[in-house]
């Protein structure tokens, strides 16, 4: 895909980062990102990735915009109520940059369509609000060998992780080290959601945002963490949240990264 004629000006603030530069900008332009769920997390994910120059989106969500969405799903406005979220999302993206390609799917991700949709993307972002969808994303990505960026929120806290990413595997002084994905040494997949939580919790055990409540800014923060991990993955940067789970607490503004080892099970 050709860069837009004004791209030097448009992306000047990130082109000047050594970690991005022209090659990184081209990688962003070529990247295909699937966002499942266009709610509190999905809105900031789509907005930051589109603004950064991600060139191809696959948006999956069966829901339409409702009044109670507007408190946190800041891509939408009152005039969008009743419209499919993915249609509004596509409109927003193409207003931001008409060259970005967007495919929209007004159905829930399912075992029947997951394989076909995954074939359209390099990386998946989980912005769903239920365990059935999350485990489906996990298993479909494991099957298709695709990485996915997990995010979820509970009241004033959030979790973020990068699962099933292809990582260079090396032994250094008897320690197993996950290095960046730029070498041609042996590769393995990072751990996935089932390595932390092998099975979904019981029905009704964990409340979603509709039941438990949430402040919109938390969704913005956690969605922004997810967008940052997608950008790091596309750009091949170090420090991706692999084999660990970041937990953010808005109440005391703390972040803890919990490590997950291959041998922890």
């Amino acid at each position: 895909m050709e860069m837009e004629p004004d791209f030097l000006d448009r992306y000047q603030r990130q082109l000047s980062l050594r970690e991005v530069g022209l090659d990184g900008q081209r990688a962003l332009r070529a990247a295909r990102v699937m966002v499942v769920g266009l709610g509190g997390l999905g809105c900031p994910v789509v907005q930051y990735l589109a603004a950064a120059g991600v060139g191809n989106f696959v948006l999956v969500d069966a829901d339409r915009v409702s009044l109670s969405n507007l408190q946190r799903q800041i891509l939408f406005t009152q005039t969008d109520i009743g419209r499919f979220k993915v249609e509004v999302g596509k409109g927003w993206i193409q207003k931001q940059n008409a060259q970005i390609k967007v495919s929209v799917h007004t159905e829930m991700l399912s075992a029947e369509n997951a394989t076909a949709y995954l074939a359209l993307a390099d990386i998946v972002v989980d912005c769903t609000d239920n365990f059935a969808a999350r485990y489906l994303i996990n298993d479909a990505c494991a099957f298709a060998n695709k990485p996915w960026v997990y995010g979820s929120i509970a009241k004033f806290e959030g979790q973020v992780a990068v699962f099933n990413a292809l990582m260079k595997y090396a032994k250094v002084e008897n320690q197993d080290i996950m290095a960046s994905q730029t070498s041609d040494d042996s590769f393995i997949r990072s751990l996935n959601y089932r390595d932390i939580f092998p099975n979904p919790p019981g029905q009704g055990e964990i409340q979603n945002c509709a039941e438990a409540g949430v402040l919109g800014a938390l969704a913005g923060i956690v969605g922004s963490f997810q967008a940052m991990e997608v950008l790091k993955w596309i750009l091949g940067l170090d420090g991706q949240l692999v084999n660990q789970m970041l937990t953010y607490s808005a109440m005391n503004q703390s972040i803890v990264k919990f490590r997950l080892d291959n041998n922890s099970d």
Binding site: G42, G151, S152, F197, A212, M245
Partner: peptide, 10 residues
């Protein structure tokens, strides 16, 4: 020590 459940919301 931390006790970590899965989160659901999005």
């Amino acid at each position: 020590v931390a006790l970590m459940p899965p989160f659901s919301g999005g």
